[in-house]
Simulated scan of single mutants.
Amino acid sequence: MDGPQRPQPMGIQLPTGTDVQSIRQRVEAMEMLLERSFRIPGINYPIGLDAIVGLVPVVGDIVTTAMGAYLVWEARNLGMPKWKLWRMAGNVGVDTLLGVVPLVGDAADFVFRSNTRNLRIIKKHLDKHHPETRIIDG
């Protein structure tokens, strides 16, 4: 060995660029983290940080709203039309309003996946306007 080994980073490496491909990778990773990063044992149902952090009253709702708003911010960076941004903000708003209601909001996090809906809007836009960023899922 020539010298001490450097520690290797764990997890996934997200690009930090402002190009369309980098933004696509970041929003896909954020949606995965918020909506499908864990599976409930026994029933094999995917959940993410949105449902878990949302269990914490008030603070959880603020944190998950901010994380959902990040997707809208990235969509704005892509130059998406304002009506799509408003639609995405509406999805985050509905998720937030449902989350404010105790128990009902926690149950709604399992059904109403605003981040998945927003990712779908972003992907549809990217597939139409930037088809070179498409990734074929295996």
Rank of each mutant, 00 (worst) to 15 (best):
E35T: 14
R113T: 07
D61Y: 01
P41Q: 05
I121L: 12
I52L: 15
F38H: 12
I23F: 04
I52S: 02
K82Q: 14
G60V: 01
K123C: 06
E28N: 08
P131F: 11
V59K: 01
N91H: 14
G3H: 13
P57G: 06
S22T: 08
R6T: 13
R6C: 05
G11R: 04
F112R: 07
P46C: 07
T65R: 02
L55H: 08
H130I: 05
R117D: 02
P102T: 03
D50T: 10
I122L: 08
F110D: 00
W73C: 02
D19H: 09
D19R: 06
G60A: 03
L97Q: 04
I43P: 09
A108T: 03
N115A: 05
K128W: 07
I122D: 04
W86Y: 14
E35A: 14
G93V: 02
D95T: 03
N118W: 03
D106P: 00
T64P: 04
D106V: 12
R36F: 03
I121D: 14
T133S: 12
K82A: 10
K82D: 13
G90L: 11
E28K: 10
M80H: 08
N77E: 11
D127C: 00
R6L: 15
Q25W: 00
N118F: 04
A108I: 02
P4V: 08
R134H: 13
A29R: 05
I43A: 09
G48E: 07
P131W: 09
G79R: 11
A75C: 10
N118Y: 05
P9H: 06
N118H: 07
I122F: 07
